[in-house]
Design a protein around this nucleic acid. Structure first.
Lengths: 211, 211
DNA sequence: GTTAAAACATGACATTTATCAGTTCTTGTT
DNA sequence: AACAAGAACTGATAAATGTCATGTTTTAAC
């Protein structure tokens, strides 16, 4: 397995703590290694021409950041910023390249993983261009529930600011806030401060599908 | 090089002709091989919930279709339809898998290529979510010029229907047509039937950048 | 605890985009 | 050449989304 292989490598490497809001790396940098998330969540985002960030991915425990840039030998096109306090380990690119050279199964495993990611990217493109903001926000909440779970009080375990939510779905912050209010009024979700809990998952799912 | 390797393999395999409008494969199919484009152009699209196609990529000579599904061992998430008459060759998945197993350099090359594609996918996501329809259409024309060139009369060598253009940028056909008319009126482009030529590349580029 | 800054929220309005309903132009066929 | 079918186009209007302005709540620092 890719993750196990990676873990084996990573266990021998440097561990680093990153505080909430701090960057692991920023758009345009040349990375000399990859980061493996041991704890916490990082948002991967890209600055658009109009000055807004677009969040492309939320990476959590076990995920690897920066491997695409290292493998393609290009500067990174994304910034990685900690959404909450994180613990990551750093694996220098020499180590990655060695493993890629010497361990064909590892390479193949990484390849499979990337092929899968590419298919997911297609889905994101379709969602972004064919779904309304309302649908994308509903989908984002379902995604957060499925991927990060809920806390003991029934709120989404990963709390994002309204601005981050708007940057995930690609809309104005005010629009996102308005739709969140609407969902609350309709009883799809409940909130407490910036925390959001899903009240009616079925309704949200129906909305995503276009009802 | 990936392409040379692939060509070597592909030369020994079956060649197939596909007429304009015909599918190479359709969304949801399990592919038992990949297609290498020898001539013509194919659109890779995905049907969205609202019944509209989103074109995710236009593949031309030298490009390979279906490798992601074969590598990830999943059903394809895209349909591939010929935009004009095509000639493709088919490479069975056993052949691909053999090469992946036996030729680590080939695998690494494919991996590099995919890493690059993934970065491009990020750009598309940002474009789709942060740019206006007008900007995306301008960008599409520049893309067509850069990737497919122009004919002897100064028209884009690849002629897409208005509907295809709207499916590339993710908008309603009428909206695309309206914006094309506007561009024509402003002297950014000129048209003849469904053919489009770029008159003022600079203006289009500025528009994309947000002026 | 107080306080300033940041985040959240809402209203009013402008802009963009989609939808529907037609008309005109092209194209391929007979 | 006539014709039918599909594509391209246009107008009117509705719906979605963005922007600006402003007030309220939350958060974090002292």
């Amino acid at each position: 397995m890719s993750k196990e292989e990676l873990k084996k490598v990573s266990d021998s490497k440097t561990i680093k703590k990153v505080k909430k809001g701090e960057p692991l790396f920023e758009e345009g940098e040349k990375l000399n290694g990859v980061f493996c998330v041991r704890d916490g969540v990082s948002k991967l985002s890209k600055l658009s021409a109009n000055g807004k960030d677009q969040i492309v991915k939320l990476a959590t425990k076990g995920e690897v950041l920066g491997q695409r840039s290292v493998i393609a030998e290009e500067c990174t096109n994304l910034s990685a910023i900690a959404v909450n306090d994180m613990e990551v380990c750093f694996i220098p690119k020499e180590s990655i390249n060695n493993t890629l050279q010497s361990n064909p199964n590892f390479t193949l495993e990484v390849l499979r993983h990337m092929a899968h990611d590419l298919k997911e990217a297609d889905d994101v493109i379709v969602n972004m261009s064919q779904k309304t903001v309302k649908q994308r926000i509903a989908e984002a909440f379902l995604y957060l529930k499925n991927n990060f779970g809920e806390d003991e009080d029934g709120f989404l375990a990963l709390t994002l600011s309204r601005e981050d939510i708007s940057n995930v779905v690609g809309t104005a912050t005010e629009s996102a806030i308005r739709i969140i209010s609407e969902f609350k009024k309709k009883g799809f979700i409940h909130t407490s401060g910036k925390k959001v809990g899903i009240t009616n998952e079925r309704k949200l799912a129906e909305l995503v599908e276009g009802f």
